[in-house]
Simulated scan of single mutants.
Amino acid sequence: MSNAIESQKVADEKKGWKGLLVAAVLSVLFLVIFYLAIENEPDYMPSKQQETNQTSFKNSPVMSKEALAEAEKQRLATTESQAADTGMKNMQQAATETHSEHSAH
């Protein structure tokens, strides 16, 4: 009987060492993945966004003076046309209100 008990203890010890080895390997694997996740910040983190904005500003192309002048002309033309459209709408609205006041009397 003592042979059976001893062989059982040896088998249990082997299982224990195997379990300990598996736990150690899994722990190391988890720690490596965790370390990599911490070191590589995703793009949506605030510190990464500031870094990206600074580098994109430095790398942005500079427009020539002629291109800037043309862009300003186009912006002014767009602003003037929007102002003219707004003025026309206001005049039409005023005319409609005046016409409705006259027909109400």
Rank of each mutant, 00 (worst) to 15 (best):
T52E: 05
M88R: 13
T96Y: 07
L20S: 13
S27G: 15
S103H: 12
K15H: 06
E70T: 11
A95T: 05
P61R: 00
S100G: 01
T78L: 14
L31D: 01
K73T: 09
I33R: 03
A11P: 01
T96C: 01
E70M: 10
Q74S: 08
E70W: 02
E101A: 13
S56M: 13
I33F: 12
V25D: 05
K89R: 15
A4D: 08
A23D: 09
W17A: 14
N40G: 00
E41V: 05
V25L: 15
E13D: 11
H99N: 04
A71K: 10
K18S: 13
S64R: 03
S47E: 14
Q74G: 06
E70K: 08
E97I: 15
Q93V: 08
S47A: 12
Q92V: 12
T78Q: 15
T55L: 12
N59K: 05
Q8V: 08
A24L: 12
Q54K: 10
E101M: 07
K58M: 03
L21H: 07
V22K: 09
S7G: 02
Q92G: 03
Q54L: 05
Q93A: 14
A4N: 11
V22Q: 10
P61I: 02
T79I: 15
T52N: 12
K58I: 06
S60C: 03
W17P: 00
A24K: 09
A67Q: 12
A71C: 02
K65S: 12
I5Q: 03
I38W: 03
I33G: 11
S100L: 10
E39K: 14
